[in-house]
Amino acid sequence: MRLMLFICLVLSPLILLGMELFHPAHFTANPGMTAYLCHPQPHDPHYDALSYFGPNWWFLLHMVQTPLVVLVGIGLLILTDTFHRDPAYKPKGEIFSWIARAAIFVFVVYFTVLDSIGGIALGRQLIVIDQLFAAGEISTYDAHVIQRFLDVMWVDSWIGGIGSFVSLAGSWAVFIAATSLAIYLTINKRMHLLGAALLIGFGWELQVAHASYHGPIAFGLLVIASIIYLYQNRLSKQVA
């Protein structure tokens, strides 16, 4: 179980931390979603990311990111004692564990939906548009109409990439999950206050955004909190 926790809550977030440094933000209004994402972009402090490599990178980023986020969700579920617990262990505040489980479920579902629509599918759509335009199969006008449609869908109130029901549901769910889990672990003396604070910080930063720089900060906080948890519980077992 410790190996699984290491994979889910240390290794996976470390990979996500590195990848999210190349996930741009603040491009929706200026120059527009498709205008920015359709082409590689040099570093610009306004967009936070270290660089953006074009639509193929957008597609690859979310293809890798999606399963890694699911692994993070599994790791958080392990901490709620969902998969294994000593029958003799009677934890305090199980209501917080159940709140965390429900919130993790919502987070994993809606984050996956968001990445599928606004990441994987959008990346492929941008690539195909470029290919069709280069092959002369669609005109400049056709490409403009398609791109306008994608821009509108990006800000759709239900499934858009920012500020939508799907986006906000996943974002607030991870904050609720992290906060509830931190309370549950703290009152059962399985996590120091520092680790709990870092875990809550992870939830808050990821609630704000998973793009740079909030995403890298969030996953960095999760890595540190998880290392603290693993070290503390290793010592606890040795003392026991």
Results as ranks from 00 to 15, higher is better:
H144N: 03
G75Y: 06
A197C: 14
A103M: 15
F149L: 13
I187C: 14
M191E: 12
H144E: 06
G163Y: 05
V72T: 08
I78F: 12
D115G: 12
W172S: 07
I187Q: 15
W172V: 06
E94A: 09
V106H: 02
F107D: 08
L71R: 07
M191I: 13
F105C: 15
K92S: 00
Y141W: 02
Q147D: 06
H84P: 05
Y184T: 12
V106P: 02
V166P: 00
T112Q: 03
Y110H: 07
S97L: 00
T179V: 05
K189L: 13
A196W: 11
F202M: 06
G203Q: 03
L198G: 01
S139V: 06
H84L: 11
S180E: 13
S167C: 01
R85T: 09
I159E: 02
H192I: 07
V106G: 00
F111R: 08
V106I: 08
G119L: 06
V106N: 00
L194P: 10
G73Y: 07
L76N: 11
P87N: 14
S167G: 01
V72W: 07
L132V: 02
F175G: 09
D81I: 10
I200W: 15
V113D: 02
D81W: 13
A182E: 10
G161F: 02
A182H: 11
G93N: 08
G203A: 08
Q131E: 14
F96K: 07
Y110P: 02
Q147R: 10
S97G: 03
E94L: 07
E137N: 15
F149N: 14
G161W: 01
E137R: 11
S97N: 00
E205R: 12
V166Q: 01
G203Y: 05
M153T: 00
V113T: 01
I127E: 12
L168C: 02
V145R: 09
L71N: 09
T186E: 12
I183R: 10
L181F: 14
